[in-house]
Design a protein around this nucleic acid. Structure first.
Lengths: 129, 129
DNA sequence: ATAAGGGTTCCAGTAACTGTAAGGTCAAGC
DNA sequence: GCTTGACCTTACAGTTACTGGAACCCTTAT
């Protein structure tokens, strides 16, 4: 399979697939003309990575997940731990963003949003205390 | 004021302050020995930027916010629009993260997390459908 | 022969810093 | 006068995960 077909099948841009090869996530063979030749196993790895990325796992996490996936004698606890730690980070991010959202929407609510220059948003950002 | 004092006062690392000078957010004078010399106005800008960054505004947003702040004849509507659009992005991010969280916690809940290799998390990631 | 639509590599750019190295300056203490 | 330590300086590389672009090769159809 050529890279374009893999892109269509996995949903990943060709550019990204080449990048994944560059960083060693996938190692397609090469045809005599230099084109990458993807095996079914290669495509499965890429699809797997695409799914993991969509859940917000980092490339490094993906590397570990692929290794666990390919390791027949893995312990599900290891996968779970990885996912758990990632979930934790997501929850932290959500909390941070929700705090920002709360502050921002308060400020926006208090801002007249007219042609006058007085603005509680700027006042708050400029607050030295 | 030297950079160390400004760092202490603004809460920003010296490194970051130097970076902000490099990208033109702040333009401190220089002492004869080459040290940066920050005016009160410089420090106010940096504090302002620190606050805006803490609310998740991008550097580019910060640039515009500082410009509005320094413009006596600004319209509060312009500030509000900027904040509104930023809030929108934050809400999108929160929604994305919440979707990830939902999927992830379902998967984690279904994973035994023991020494056996069978794992619904990996199964889901590997799912071709 | 040529044109379209693949494929290839390599280099630069993105956001917002952070780390590190190599070196200059200043005030205090011996 | 000299050293030590804390501060300051610049410059360059590295981070994350790609993305865009240029220049060029391969294949197939007309």
């Amino acid at each position: 399979m050529n890279i374009g077909d893999v892109a269509a099948q996995s949903g990943l841009p060709s550019k990204t697939i080449r990048y994944y090869e560059e960083i060693g996530l996938v190692k397609p063979a090469r045809d005599p003309n230099g084109y990458r030749s993807f095996s079914d196993a290669n495509v499965h790895v890429l699809t797997f990575v695409a799914h993991a990325r969509a859940l917000g796992f980092s490339i490094d996490d993906c590397r570990q997940l692929v290794a666990l996936w390919e390791n027949q004698s893995r312990a599900s606890a290891d996968v779970r731990a990885l996912a758990q730690s990632h979930l934790q980070q997501i929850e932290t991010k959500i909390a941070d963003l929700e705090a920002m959202r709360a502050t921002l929407s308060d400020l926006i609510r208090d801002c007249a949003g007219n042609t006058r220059p007085d603005c509680p948003i700027l006042e708050r950002l400029a607050d030295q205390s």
